[in-house]
Write a protein that binds this DNA or RNA. Structure first.
Lengths: 208, 208
DNA sequence: CCATGCAGTTAACAACTGTTCTCTGGAATT
DNA sequence: AATTCCAGAGAACAGTTGTTAACTGCATGG
């Protein structure tokens, strides 16, 4: 069904991706609200006006980056949190997923951590929406667990939001560990994983 | 001992404060890394060059804002977390302190939440230092509690950091509730307080 | 009372920004 | 083969930025 898109569209998507990549790189040392359109095109090596063929503004590009950073995570979340194994096991699985994701895409994680409370409203909203979707999905998995009987839908969703928040905090801590001096890295990573597990556990105990 | 500073220095501090206030206002809708020096002076009604009499750069002003936002909190933290009353009581006291602080200085709280992971390194560091001081102080109070016997200094400090992080998250949630529609405000505020208490409690239970 | 110090002003600078309009080369369509 | 389409280039615009220099007026200390 995927009819290979022509040379034309392929080239277009290529420069679009180049713009996204360049922006993500530049955003390691500044916030989105100070990112200039010319700055991005200069980094890619295209004319400033080419930017408009892909994004209305840098805020628009930011929203696209949110999709890129979080969009692909949904299926992974579902399977890791799915109701197989006991609580303890699910928690360690989730934390491992986070650790691997932070390790693989540190720039994306930093971007989300930074812009979640950042100065660009549409981007904040896009992040909030994605996190709400995560929470919804976590709730769906929680609901399958027999332990969840007797809980209202709202309570479960609230609990799911708690989990999602905790995951973000954990990701941020992993990132800090990653950015620190290399000799401490392994130790601090283990440390964060341990603290995060301890932090998550009581949340599920409220269940009982 | 405070020899009333002359007309000269008084006027200087006044414009300095005006610059800080104006910046804080402008930062409600953008990040520090995009805040221009001219923008600030224009809001105050003073020549752009006057800025340099007070700050080297906007980053420098940001560091001053961190001091203003968090500096005055240290004594309050000490007394609220001090070892009087049981854990439950201390927790509710701390959460009430946070709620009142967010209510009284929402712009400061937003600034800290935004710039903690923001794009300006010196400001991030200033915030990290202040939070480390908070953790140190909380640790000192924890150490006075007989329950803390048998814990190493490092473990206590780690626990204190956990508390401080949790306080910041709570502050951020209070702020979100405050920014939402007015009819939901009271309910959401109560909700946040309740969830925060539940979230903090297990942390201290790890003690036992 | 007079000389000094210094907060804030004025003017000018090169560099940079987002946005518009016009143009071009080559892929896509007919 | 001829035509349309459109991603990207190029040039120009008015407005903004941070920073420098030389100034002015007034509070200060001798």
């Amino acid at each position: 069904m995927s009819h290979t898109l022509g040379i034309r569209q392929a080239q277009k998507q290529k420069t679009r991706q180049a713009l996204l990549d360049a922006a993500l790189g530049l955003l390691e040392e500044q916030s989105l609200s100070s990112l200039g359109l010319r700055e991005v095109t200069r980094a890619v090596g295209v004319a400033p006006t080419a930017f408009y063929r892909h994004f209305r503004s840098t805020a628009d590009l930011g929203v696209a980056l949110v999709e890129e950073a979080l969009g692909s995570l949904h299926p992974m979340i579902r399977t890791t949190v799915s109701a197989t194994g006991d609580h303890e096991e699910r928690i360690t699985r989730a934390i491992e997923l986070i650790a691997r994701h932070v390790d693989g895409y540190p720039a994306h994680v930093r971007f989300i951590a930074r812009e979640r409370h950042g100065g660009v409203q549409p981007v904040r909203e896009a992040i909030r929406d994605q996190l709400a979707r995560f929470a919804q999905e976590v709730k769906d998995e929680l609901a399958k667990d027999p332990v969840s009987e007797g809980w209202t839908e709202d309570d479960l969703l609230m609990l799911a939001h708690l989990y999602v928040d905790q995951m973000l905090i954990t990701a941020s801590l992993f990132l800090e560990a990653l950015e620190g001096p290399e000799e401490e890295r392994a130790q601090r990573t283990r440390h964060v994983a341990q603290v995060a597990t301890r932090q998550m556990r009581p949340v599920s105990y409220t269940h009982l």
